[in-house]
Nucleic acid binder design. Structure first.
Lengths: 349, 349
DNA sequence: GGGATCGCCTTGATCGTTCCAAGGTCAGCA
DNA sequence: TGCTGACCTTGGAACGATCAAGGCGATCCC
């Protein structure tokens, strides 16, 4: 659509400053404000004037200076999101998949995503500075694994933000949030296994202080109880590492003789697969295994790890929707949004 | 260090506008410029004045308005980076690990990372708008798999950018770049296997039109030739999928009887592992396998996939260094930087 | 025909910061 | 006392956009 100004002369192009509203106005023979309107409120202009201005904009390759616009409108059309260091040794790339979705979705809404890092010890670093310098319009808060200090902190400061993760430790929180129903996901997985005839389905999850872990666990027990089956002795809670998953599954196999495992993460599920391999058991045939997160590991490992998949694309869409409400005039805050995961079926189940 | 203004009164805090330079100046009893200097050129102030101003800044919780500063200084302290959609079905999370490193490194240099998405068909979408609206100071260009149209495009526009990936199709390019020496990595892997006594080491790589693929392949053949060993019949070029890797390794095992595989990616290596499992061969014992990228898959799969690891943290550091040179006054462009990968040893070798 | 109304465009002020050039203060020295 | 120079400090003017209000024809209506 747009074109470079004045030909493609390769040689002496001075590093000139980009054209401004005033330049466009002069070329089109109108005032600055008219050009501004052509960009932001085209309806206000007569058709022929609009055409003339747009032509001038195109000729000059004009694009509104972001800094000036931000200053005047007090908004940056930037959404801040803090990312922690990449976790090695686990299969969890959920955050990265989510970032991709968020970037694409927010682009359609006219926003860009600004990433920032913070001290892993202090969940609040980084937010403060961006907020006070009005560098971003809002935040997306993600790491809500254990409670959510950022949310409380931001809420107190009246900073606009949307949480990806429900307010576990404060159900009365008033900020908008979007979350994936983990219990529903593990229920789905467990019910699927039950339908295939499994009766003894074990659970390997995280430490008890993880809200998310307990939520996922509840879906497993719910599904079993719904069919009148016991859960006693079939559950284990460990760290989120392959080794822990392997050990836990070994113990469970010896003591409870399950025919299937549902795990709180793909990492743990990989541990189960290791134990099965050690014992010469064929996953999907002798013992079924289902993980959580549908990581790349689940996708490329043989024979393919069945896994609960979070609808991160939908989550991004809902989050951007909530952000738009939050930044509208007047701001609107809808109820929390809960999304249902799906089951990515593969060889291990 | 900084503190919230005026206590923690929870109730009636009006959504007030943040303090400005003028507010700080008034409180400290000095002029705006003096406050500005306190922030940007503290050396210019007398010690007692500086202390007084800093106190006022702290009291008010002042932070310079980014938009205003950007407008005046014509710089945003933002680095743009385009990300493509997350690739499903492959083990490649290199980009994500790199993004994490880049965000952390650039924070230390006073920059934030702005992510944007673009039409996968057109490698140039997105850059144009950010550039003309002066939304970012510079770009980091990553997807340089096949040639590098973005680089040429940006170069023509005199936009500051650093490429992660050498200018394959134009060695005379004058932009700064940082890259990882893939050939050195596969040489390292191959030599390691040779040292362990392997004589017949196969290669599974990508299509011939991939510069990166051919580079990595050259390290393998270089290492073999260095010991006077032939490469004929030991190489295969396929798509980057698990299935392709599996098929290729099956054929190679039948026809060339290699005792080890070096692969252009972890995805392909996972394919080799699948074939070995199908044939009852034990990886690391019967046949050695080495992948490339040290993905999470390599880390969690059993018995652990040996893999060439790119020093992405170092790459981020070098790139930020190059960016700082590019944005200095006057700008400086150093020579391209080539980094050497390492070998992450695990069970398959 | 006169006044109100409407559509369309223009003008001046403003957002919060940094740059610029000039102004102020004070000690040191003759 | 008056001058010089070093050192801080100061007000005014940008940066490039949008907001608020106003001008100015043409149209409408009684």
């Amino acid at each position: 659509m747009s074109r470079t100004p004045a030909g493609t002369g390769r040689a002496a192009r001075v590093p000139t400053t980009p054209p401004t509203l005033a330049d466009v106005a002069e070329r089109a023979g109108v005032s600055r404000q008219t050009v501004s309107n052509a960009v932001n409120n085209p309806d206000l202009l007569r058709a022929d004037t609009l055409a003339r201005v747009l032509q001038a904009i195109d000729d000059l390759g004009y694009s509104p200076n972001r800094a000036a616009r931000n200053l005047r409108t007090r908004s940056s059309h930037l959404i801040g999101m803090r990312i922690g260091p990449a976790q090695e040794g686990t299969a969890n790339a959920t955050m990265d998949r989510f970032v991709h979705s968020l970037v694409e979705t927010s682009r359609d809404a006219g926003y860009h995503v600004l990433l920032f890092a913070g001290d892993p010890e202090d969940p609040v670093t980084g937010y403060d500075d961006l907020l006070r310098s009005t560098a971003v319009d809002a935040f997306v808060v993600t790491d809500t694994y254990l409670g959510n200090p950022q949310a409380a902190w931001l809420e107190e400061r009246r900073a606009p933000f949307v949480a990806f993760g429900r307010p576990w430790d404060n159900p009365a929180a008033e900020h908008p949030w979007v979350d994936v129903d983990g219990a529903s996901g593990t229920d789905l997985a467990t019910s699927y296994l039950l339908d295939k005839g499994h009766q003894r389905i074990a659970w390997i999850g995280w430490r008890k202080d993880s809200f998310i872990g307990e939520d996922r666990r509840s879906g497993w027990s719910r599904a079993l109880h719904a069919r009148g089956l016991p859960t006693t002795g079939l559950a284990s809670r460990v760290e989120d590492t392959v080794g822990s998953g392997s050990e836990a599954s070994a113990v469970l196999l010896d003591e409870a003789r399950p025919t299937a495992f549902v795990c709180a993460s793909d990492t743990l599920a990989m541990g189960v697969l290791r134990t099965l391999a050690d014992r010469g058991l064929v996953p999907g045939h002798d013992v079924a295994v289902i993980g959580f997160d549908d990581s790349q590991v689940a996708q490329v490992v043989s024979p393919g790890l069945t896994s609960v998949r979070q609808p991160l694309e939908d989550a991004a869409v809902e989050i951007v929707k909530a952000l738009e409400g939050l930044l509208a005039h007047p701001p609107t805050v809808g109820p929390g949004v809960m999304l249902t995961p799906t089951l990515a079926l593969r060889g291990t189940s």
